[in-house]
Amino acid sequence: MKGDARDPSGLIAESFRIEGITQAECRNIFLDWALKLPVQQDSQSVIPELLERHADQPDNHPMIQTLREGLARAPRPGRRGGRAGRMS
Rank of each mutant, 00 (worst) to 15 (best):
Q65A: 13
G81C: 02
L31D: 13
D42I: 08
K36T: 13
C26D: 04
F16Q: 02
M1Y: 11
V46H: 07
P77F: 08
L31M: 13
A34H: 13
Q40P: 02
S15Y: 00
F30Q: 01
R76I: 10
G85L: 00
Q23L: 14
P58V: 07
P38I: 06
S45V: 14
R68S: 03
E49L: 15
I64G: 03
I64R: 03
P8L: 04
Q40W: 12
S43Q: 15
L71G: 07
E69Y: 06
T22V: 05
R76F: 07
Q57S: 10
L35H: 14
S15C: 07
R68W: 08
A84T: 01
A24V: 13
S15Q: 04
R17F: 08
R53T: 12
L31C: 14
G10M: 06
T66A: 07
Q57V: 02
C26L: 02
K2V: 11
C26I: 06
A74N: 13
A5M: 11
L11H: 04
D42V: 10
R53K: 14
I12R: 00
F16D: 04
K2R: 13
K2S: 15
R83C: 05
K36H: 12
R17D: 15
E19S: 12
Q44N: 13
G82W: 00
L67S: 00
P8C: 04
E19L: 10
G85D: 00
Q44T: 12
N28S: 14
I47V: 12
F30T: 06
R53I: 06
F16N: 06
F30D: 03
P38H: 09
V46W: 06
R73Y: 07
L35A: 15
P75K: 02
R27K: 12
V46M: 08
I47Y: 03
D56S: 15
R27E: 15
G70R: 03
I21E: 07
I18V: 15
M1A: 13
L67T: 00
I47W: 05
R68L: 10
G70K: 00
I29S: 02
L71Y: 07
M87V: 12
A72C: 09
D32K: 14
C26R: 02
E49T: 10
W33S: 03
S9C: 03
I64K: 07
A74T: 11
G81Q: 02
L37D: 06
T22Y: 10
L35D: 15
P48S: 06
F30N: 08
R80T: 04
G78V: 01
I18A: 07
A74L: 15
R79S: 09
E14N: 10
R17V: 09
H54I: 05
R79W: 03
D32M: 13
G78S: 10
